[in-house]
């Protein structure tokens, strides 16, 4: 961040008197938030969720903790709560991918030729594992991986303790590890090539 670019907290503080300034928060973070929401729910639902996320953030800006310079964890938290309303959509798409290998979420962004068949099995098993996770565990896991949040930021985003974040990530990780066969699938592919 350059010196001339004020922290998110300063922008939000100012938006409390000048609401239109809040558009800057949207400009800074909406592209990333939208990508995250699409990865979880697909393109169709994402527009609603993203619009609602920023409207909710706008309405809650009076409660924003100005000690947090970066608003991204806060926005991820709001988005995650709204994504929770679409749990069935999320599960349906993950299960479809697990069963058929076709991912409705990535379809608009992929051409057939892009699909690497070697990774297909991994995708299906990952989808199954994600679908099987308790919603709270999936939320935390995806915030720290796709969202890139630290454990502390994820805890702030969801209003839970850091210890809870840590234990959920660990358990979710163990389950995925198990689902992927407890082995490194990449190594298996390389092994096949070597011996094959």
């Amino acid at each position: 961040m350059s010196e001339t670019s004020p922290a998110d907290s300063a922008v939000i503080a100012r938006s409390r008197q000048e609401p239109e300034v809040f558009a800057e928060i949207f400009r800074r973070h909406a592209p990333e938030i939208k990508r995250f929401v699409i990865r979880r729910l697909g393109l169709d639902v994402a527009e609603d969720v993203v619009a609602e996320t920023f409207l909710a953030a706008f309405r809650q800006r009076g409660r924003y903790d100005l000690a947090r310079h970066n608003a991204l964890p806060w926005l991820y938290g709001i988005a995650t709560n709204l994504i929770g309303r679409h749990k069935r959509t999320e599960a349906r798409q993950l299960n479809l991918l697990a069963r058929t290998g076709v991912d409705p979420v990535t379809e608009p962004f992929t051409s057939r030729s892009d699909e690497r068949l070697s990774a297909q099995a991994v995708r299906q098993r990952l989808a199954a594992a994600l679908a099987a996770l308790p919603a709270g565990h999936r939320d935390v896991l995806l915030l720290v991986t796709w969202g890139g949040l630290s454990y502390t930021e994820a805890a702030e985003a969801l209003g839970i303790r850091v210890g809870t974040v840590r234990s959920r990530v660990n358990r979710a990780r163990a389950k995925i590890h198990e689902e992927l066969g407890g082995t490194d699938p990449t190594a298996v592919v390389i092994g096949e090539v070597r011996h094959g």
Binding site: E32, K34, R35, I38, D103, V105, T106, T110, D114, L126
Partner: peptide, 8 residues
């Protein structure tokens, strides 16, 4: 996983 979704 689903990393082909670009930043919007």
């Amino acid at each position: 996983f689903r990393s082909e979704v670009p930043v919007q």
